[in-house]
Design a protein around this nucleic acid. Sequence first.
DNA 1: GCAACATATCATGATATGATGATATGTCAA
DNA 2: TTGACATATCATCATATCATGATATGTTGC
Lengths: 106, 106
Amino acid sequence: MKTKTSRCAGLPDAAELERLASVLRLLAHPERLRIVGRLERGGAAPVHELMGDLDHTQGALSQHLNHMKRAGLLQAERRGKEVWYSIADRRAVSVLHCMCCKKENP
Amino acid sequence: MKTKTSRCAGLPDAAELERLASVLRLLAHPERLRIVGRLERGGAAPVHELMGDLDHTQGALSQHLNHMKRAGLLQAERRGKEVWYSIADRRAVSVLHCMCCKKENP
DNA sequence: GCAACATATCATGATATGATGATATGTCAA
DNA sequence: TTGACATATCATCATATCATGATATGTTGC
């Protein structure tokens, strides 16, 4: 027996692959990778602090944060005037770490 | 002391982040994720076999393969009329596995 | 209410990426 | 050398993404 998926058994289906790809698209951006790294190392932070650490304009940073939040990668919590962001999906950190490994096969 | 990068120490520099992001951009596509999964599970294969397994048109598949090859994610070897592709950068597989994990934090 | 601050959203033009169909190149066998 | 097969590349159009600057919303303290 040889179906179209015989060598792809166990792979996510089309809809799930589309979801995985859409999350990866968000991570596939240098500034957003920096945001993930910053939040991993420095912990949760309000936007203006991230602005200082990462050297973004306010509008651009806010859009990056909101995209990642809507995708579930980050979570946000308002504390008074500030909104504190932190990592909500550990796959963001995992992917960053994966990418920083050596690429060679063992 | 509090520099702009004090909470980002150890993160890759801007050029390296751009390189990581460009590799992730390639993986951030459902069809290319399927190609990685197929090559991981079924091993190296010529293009026409991938075409059958993955249900792509020839031109589209060839372009995906070549993009990933140029980025070093895949490698290609000609055997007679055929060109056999296989995975060259294990990060491709790692990222796919990362993405298939549960997203919840422990 | 108003001022000051923190964050979010919008509008726009520039650039990148993707799908498709056509065409070109390379390899082998007869 | 010709034909058949395998793969690569090209041209084009449609769509998505990005950066930027302007503007809007929400929060607090006075």
